[in-house]
Design a protein around this nucleic acid. Structure first.
Lengths: 109, 109
DNA sequence: TCAATAGTTCAATATATATTGAACTATTGA
DNA sequence: TCAATAGTTCAATATATATTGAACTATTGA
């Protein structure tokens, strides 16, 4: 069984986290993953599997998401608690801001 | 008198802010600017003026800092209140995390 | 008026990044 | 055993980014 690298909570670096979040595609992934674990193909972005795989890896290596292997699938979730203990409040403020944007977009329709 | 572009508070985009913060040099600038207005040359980074100028522009256009012209100097400060009203708590959590890191580094010496 | 000061802009450049599609790996279930 | 499924890895590529140093702009103060 293959094991995937995940940085330890105390090794998560703010600069890396900010860098990883500073991309529209990855920000969208995080947004869609805010409330539930997703498999790679459930993320709902119109990108090639190989492109998504690249972004998942960036998010995972920055310490933002955790990937769990189950059969042929991989389930990914936000490391919300880890991020919260390392950078208190940080990810929550981002998720709130992302959610607000979504509401605005929705109400514009 | 030249006027510099600054996005309006409501036009500040989280993705742009995150992108701008996802660089070591710019993160350092923000850190050093956390508590007081600085002129371009006071920022204390070992970089060429033209390099710093480039990063200041990125930070300014992302809505993170405000640049005030006074004589031949330019004074820059964090748009803390604007960022706080747009993304409540976000910048504060970053500054807290940056400050903590500084303490760790200091205590290592 | 003019030199000094403070910072910006520009073109050139090396490097990093995101994307693509093909080949690959690992696991399941028949 | 083997085809199907789910996702990764790889090389190639186009584009974006950070850095450099020279030329430039704007302002001050003598």
């Amino acid at each position: 069984m293959k094991t995937l690298y995940h940085p330890k909570t105390e090794d998560i670096e703010l600069a890396n986290v900010l860098y990883a979040l500073g991309d529209q595609t990855r920000l969208q992934i995080v947004k869609n993953m805010a409330n539930r674990e997703l498999s790679c193909s459930e993320v709902g972005l119109d990108k090639l599997k190989s492109t998504l795989s690249y972004h998942y890896k960036m998010l995972r290596e920055a310490g933002i998401i955790r990937t769990r292997i189950e059969g042929t699938q991989r389930f990914m979730s936000l490391r919300r608690d880890d991020l919260n203990s390392r950078f208190p409040g940080f990810m929550d403020t981002i998720l709130v801001s992302l959610t607000k944007t979504e509401e605005l977009v929705t109400s514009e329709k």
